[in-house]
Simulated scan of single mutants.
Amino acid sequence: MIQGCFITLEGGEGTGKSTQAKAIADALEKNGTKVVLTREPGGTPGAETIRELLLTGAEEKWNIRTEALLFAAARAEHCAKLIRPALARGEWVVCDRFIDSSRAYQSVNGEISDAEIMDLHRIGSGNLMPHRTFVLDLPETDALRRAAARDRGESDRIGGRDRDYHRAVMANFRKFAADEPDRIRLIDASQSVEAVTASLVQNLDGLKP
């Protein structure tokens, strides 16, 4: 039984997801809420091992279907061993990326569909969905600049894909937000860090542990 709340942060490279995930967790904890802060791929020892497999090495290391299966496997482990137990205890879970990243990234080239990715999620993770998802939206030039400063020339094998790929990923995220406005909120990430955090916290309206 799910008793807690599940919040996810999504968006392209360099939009500030990790920073804002921690900021939301800190804000909730200051109000006395028990919070589990985690990330994908990863969050458990097994899922972190799969993360290393996914993000290191050459672009041609995996084909897109293998990549999708690996992400689904990492998520299945993450949900079973960390996310669902925390929610069952009535805690809030704040996660840096989740299923919407798989949908946005793996479906870009058309080799695997959004429906197929959701089928993998249903099989592996019981179709667990966040109560609220924030997509951090940043102009492309700003996102590229921030990602370059973060990576210092050492992007991982997915972050290092070309601009057209990442442009299509962000277009997918915006489409998801338009299609599911009750769950997904599009947030202007070009504001100051503090202003973005305030907007995120304000958009937790209506959620209860």
Rank of each mutant, 00 (worst) to 15 (best):
Q106L: 11
N31H: 13
I2P: 02
A47H: 07
D162R: 07
G126H: 12
R97D: 12
E154Q: 14
G32F: 09
A177R: 03
N203L: 08
Q3K: 15
E52F: 02
E67F: 09
E52Y: 05
D26K: 14
K81L: 05
A143Y: 00
H166P: 04
F98A: 08
I112D: 08
E180R: 03
A58E: 15
A74Q: 12
L28F: 05
L204F: 11
L82S: 01
R167S: 15
P130H: 07
R183G: 11
N109C: 10
F98K: 07
M118W: 07
P85S: 02
P209K: 15
K22E: 09
K175W: 06
N127L: 10
M129K: 14
D162Q: 10
G124T: 01
R152Y: 03
D142S: 13
L87P: 07
L9P: 08
L138A: 11
G46C: 09
I7N: 01
S102T: 12
E194W: 00
I187G: 06
A189C: 11
D179T: 09
P209C: 13
R132C: 10
R89N: 11
H121V: 01
P181H: 03
G4M: 06
H166F: 02
N203Q: 15
G16F: 01
G12F: 02
D26A: 14
I7P: 04
A72Q: 11
I83T: 02
M129D: 06
W62E: 02
S155E: 04
R51M: 09
I7S: 03
L53N: 01
E29A: 15
I24C: 01
Q3N: 14
R167L: 11
A147F: 00
L120M: 11
A74W: 07
Y165Q: 10
C95R: 04
D188I: 12
R152L: 14
I83R: 05
D151G: 04
A74G: 13
S107R: 04
A171K: 08
A74M: 13
R84W: 11
P130M: 07
Q202S: 14
G16C: 06
F98R: 04
E67A: 13
L136V: 13
F134Y: 00
T66L: 13
A177T: 07
I123Y: 13
G124D: 00
E111R: 11
D114V: 14
V169R: 09
